[in-house]
Simulated scan of single mutants.
Amino acid sequence: MDHSAVLARYDRDMRENATPDGPGARIERAGAVVRQVADAHGWNGVLWSDLDPGSADRAIQEQIDRFTGLGRGFEWKLYGHDRPGDLGARLTSAGFRAEPEETLLIGETGRLALDAEPPAGVRLVRVTDPAGVDLVVDVHEKAFGTDGTGLRHRLLARLAADPGTLVALVALAGDEPVSAARMELVPGTRFAGLWGGGTVEAWRGRGVYRALVAHRARVAAAHGCRYLQVDASALSRPILQRLGFHALSTTTPYLHGR
Rank of each mutant, 00 (worst) to 15 (best):
T19E: 13
L243R: 00
T103G: 07
E28D: 13
M14F: 06
W76Q: 01
P119M: 03
G150V: 04
R206P: 04
P84A: 03
G22E: 01
S93E: 15
R97Y: 07
H215T: 15
W76K: 02
A220N: 03
H3G: 10
A211E: 03
A234R: 08
D162A: 15
T165Q: 11
L135F: 08
R111P: 02
G150I: 05
L114G: 06
S179H: 06
L78H: 12
G197P: 09
G31I: 07
S4E: 15
L156H: 10
P84G: 00
V46Q: 07
A8S: 12
W48N: 05
G85S: 09
R237V: 15
A56G: 04
G196W: 06
G164I: 00
G197I: 11
D175A: 13
D21M: 14
L104A: 05
L70T: 06
A113W: 13
R111E: 12
R123Q: 10
R12L: 14
D21A: 15
G198S: 04
A94E: 08
H153K: 10
T252R: 09
D65R: 14
R226L: 11
V139R: 00
V139P: 00
A171L: 03
A202M: 04
G198W: 06
V186C: 10
P130R: 06
A18I: 02
D129K: 04
V125Q: 05
T68N: 09
V137R: 01
P20L: 01
R123T: 15
P53R: 07
A180T: 05
T199F: 00
R29Q: 09
P23F: 04
L155W: 05
V136S: 07
A221N: 05
P100K: 06
R206F: 06
G95C: 01
V230I: 13
L228E: 08
Y209C: 02
E28T: 11
G150T: 03
R90T: 07
D57T: 13
E184R: 14
V125N: 00
A25V: 05
D162M: 09
D50Y: 08
G193M: 14
D134Q: 10
T251G: 11
L91S: 02
E141Q: 15
G164T: 01
S49W: 10
G257P: 12
I27E: 02
A59K: 07
L194Q: 11
S93I: 11
A168R: 01
L248V: 07
A181T: 10
G42Q: 01
D82C: 09
R83Y: 10
L51R: 06
L169S: 08
T128W: 07
L78G: 04
L194R: 08
P187L: 08
L151H: 00
G54L: 12
R97E: 14
D57K: 09
